[in-house]
Design a binder for these strands. Structure first.
Lengths: 208, 208
DNA sequence: GTCTATATCAAGATAGAC
DNA sequence: GTCTATCTTGATATAGAC
């Protein structure tokens, strides 16, 4: 009896993951407004009505995809922390921040970073009321904030900037449209693009 | 007879400017998708049908606002060039680039910089077919490109970056969402925000 | 030339059969 | 629990009166 229920739950979980994966790709490819629920259903391989049983609205779909993306980011950050705790020499906080930005940009290049209208949409309002989303956003901001404070204290990051500005900039660069623009003019290697955009974020455009 | 016609043309021109101004503000405030033609008509003080006589589609409205914005940018750039030709010492190319980015960010802060979904929308496709828009975009890119090449040749800009990347970054920073994020957390002065975001663009986040 | 009223359509959401 | 078929809404676009 419980086994039957468990199997059914697993099936549902697989279906949910298929939906969230489809939303993730479509959000990355076309953005929230251009994405239609019909497309999501088609890509996930089920009828729209079945999808609406699991996610009661389009906003819930987007929220689920964002939560999953934040979970991946948190997992990456935790992985860096583990590496650092095992490393013989303490890893530089700024190196960890660079690694996170680079990972985010790479994810974006691979079409797996959902990007939302960062401001002014009705979607942002509903996301801010979503506890699952907000919890993860706060958790990620806190972890990155620790590294920022550390890097500023050690003189690795410019201390003239408020930590808030640095955090906002890191989040913004994680979805930097420059990455996509470079994608279309495809005369450079993947690695070059990541190197350049990461460098321009931390070292600036001006010569040093 | 011609006077009558001229007056009528002037009236139309005023109405057109009211419309483009309204579109400009709404695009800056809410973005293209959230902006409705009803709002534009209301803000411009006329009925929707009258508006559609002048601009046959919503995309035409957005294009007109973008053309006007690019004209303002070109005028600003030309102003800098005139100043430089009158100055006793030649102005540094990098200083001019900084001035342009700062001007764009300030315009954005004031709610007068129309921002469009930079990618993947059906709008971008139609804009790329719009000659008025493309001419101005090419003109602006060419002028900025001259400064970029000059600044790289003089060792003011990092020559490791392809000029293309620098240009993309300048355009992207002109609509940097960080500016808006800082706007909401309003504990800083206008000037501070502009200084910081300009500095992070050219000098980077890392300490020098 | 401008406005009121309406057509048209796309997309989010749901009812009901199986 | 899933799918087909349908409802509903909101927004673009237009017809026709004045």
């Amino acid at each position: 009896m419980t086994a039957r229920a468990s199997i059914r739950q697993q099936v549902q979980r697989v279906r949910e993951e298929a939906i969230v994966g489809a939303v993730n790709r479509l959000l990355s490819l076309k953005g929230y407004d251009a994405m239609t629920v019909d497309e999501v259903a088609a890509e996930a391989g089920m009828a729209k009505a079945s999808l609406y049983k699991l996610f009661p609205s389009k906003e819930d779909l987007a929220a689920a995809a964002m939560v999953a993306a934040l979970d991946r980011a948190l997992a990456f950050v935790d992985g860096l922390n583990e590496q650092a705790s095992r490393a013989p020499v303490a890893t530089l906080a700024i190196a960890q921040l660079k690694a996170v930005v680079r990972w985010a940009m790479q994810t974006q290049l691979e079409g797996e970073m959902p990007s939302l209208p960062s401001q002014n949409s009705s979607l942002s309002a509903s996301l801010q009321l979503n506890d699952q989303y907000m919890d993860r956003l706060v958790a990620l901001s806190t972890k990155l904030g620790t590294w920022v404070a550390d890097a500023q204290a050690r003189g690795q990051l410019n201390s003239a900037f408020p930590a808030e500005l640095v955090l906002y900039t890191l989040f913004a660069r994680a979805c930097d449209p420059v990455v996509t623009m470079l994608k279309s003019s495809g005369q450079y290697t993947h690695e070059q693009k990541l190197d350049w955009v990461t460098a321009s974020t931390f070292e600036g455009l001006a010569a040093r």
